[in-house]
Nucleic acid binder design. Sequence first.
DNA 1: CGTGTCGTTGAGCGCTTTCAACCCTGGTGG
DNA 2: CCACCAGGGTTGAAAGCGCTCAACGACACG
Lengths: 228, 228
Amino acid sequence: MGRLGCFEGWESDQLTRLAAAAKFLSFPKKEKLIGKGDLIGSLFVVISGRIRLHIPLSNGTERVIALLGQGESLGEPCIVMSEPCPYEVVACQHSHLIAIDAPTYRRELRRNPLMVERVLSLVSKRLLNTLRDIEICAQPTSVQRVASFINQLGPNDQTPAFEICLPGLKRDIAAKLGLRQETFSRMLTFLIGRGFIKVNGAHVRVDDRGRLRRWMLSGCPLGASANK
Amino acid sequence: MGRLGCFEGWESDQLTRLAAAAKFLSFPKKEKLIGKGDLIGSLFVVISGRIRLHIPLSNGTERVIALLGQGESLGEPCIVMSEPCPYEVVACQHSHLIAIDAPTYRRELRRNPLMVERVLSLVSKRLLNTLRDIEICAQPTSVQRVASFINQLGPNDQTPAFEICLPGLKRDIAAKLGLRQETFSRMLTFLIGRGFIKVNGAHVRVDDRGRLRRWMLSGCPLGASANK
DNA sequence: CGTGTCGTTGAGCGCTTTCAACCCTGGTGG
DNA sequence: CCACCAGGGTTGAAAGCGCTCAACGACACG
């Protein structure tokens, strides 16, 4: 457990107590860990695999909230507030997690103020990330949503060119952007056609970030492809 | 300051120190307090009036993140993380706020672990609220968005009937739901026509919450009006 | 070689937006 | 006292965009 980044800096005796209240769990692909509205009994930390948080919708589809990979955790806000889970948690692939008993976690939190500060940082960061997601989904057209999403996956500094891997299946990315898989695919081919991006499987490359951003912010005039 | 709910439970000497670093500010209608991307120099608490947090979009419109009233605060996540503000802050009406110097706030936070716990609760609650907003905006059709929104404004218990006041102008509510003012208006008249709600200005009344929720979740079949 | 999953492409429809005019109310000043 | 105006809200008609449904292609796996 000590090797995981999210436990870095904790006192070792506290880690020991937490580990005593932790279980190592294994989930096959598509297995549901938590249902929407369930009370959460433990804090989960992803060891391997990929976990999807999503809200099921009335038309059978779903809105993806987040896709978690190694070292990421889930459930802090619900445990802190003793509130039911606002999303459903499912394994995208065969995954391994550790589950830390919630009462124990709360007790250790109360015992160690430093840990509370860390959790506060974590939840704050997550809130800011969520607001950025809302901004992306609020873009008026789907091309803009996709372009914003790709741009924001790049490094925070102003590097002009970069290359990234989509953090999940295209279907799930689409659901995170509030789009259907088909629309996402179409928008990607559109961006490719205009020379904004190059795509190879889950691999996306951006050559001129500035051009992409400028075109994005100016409302995506279709004639912008002529700007060589 | 002691009278405001958000400072309840704090130690009085700490309150005194915070008050020393606080300014009382007055903002006319439409005045911008913080721009998107600005670094926040202080924590704001609303004393009176109404404050709108929104993200400006490329087509000239905006997405409303929250509408704050008396006693509500803003800026904690940004101050904790030292990150720029992800939204723009504007006064909807002539408003009064107090601004607490950020470094002082951080210093007092570090001094008092109990206060960190309170802020953690606050930020957690805000994250959960934001997720609920995402759920509402993710509804497939605009009628469902509006219906979800109204339903969620009611009391948390399962009261069958209730009456509420819209927490802002219809234009702003619409922007919070990711809709245009016109569409919001149309959906309200639609819900009125089906007998789900009664509207009088900003006043909305729901007689049979169960029927509304059932119809909402079943994908809003248009024939549902016949269910007397 | 069949099967299942993931992704792309095509055609048509329906919902939301857009742009426009109009209504209503409260405030203001002659 | 009333004309006038601005801001908020409603209503109408037309167009565009994303969704739906369907078929097809690529690839991994047993």
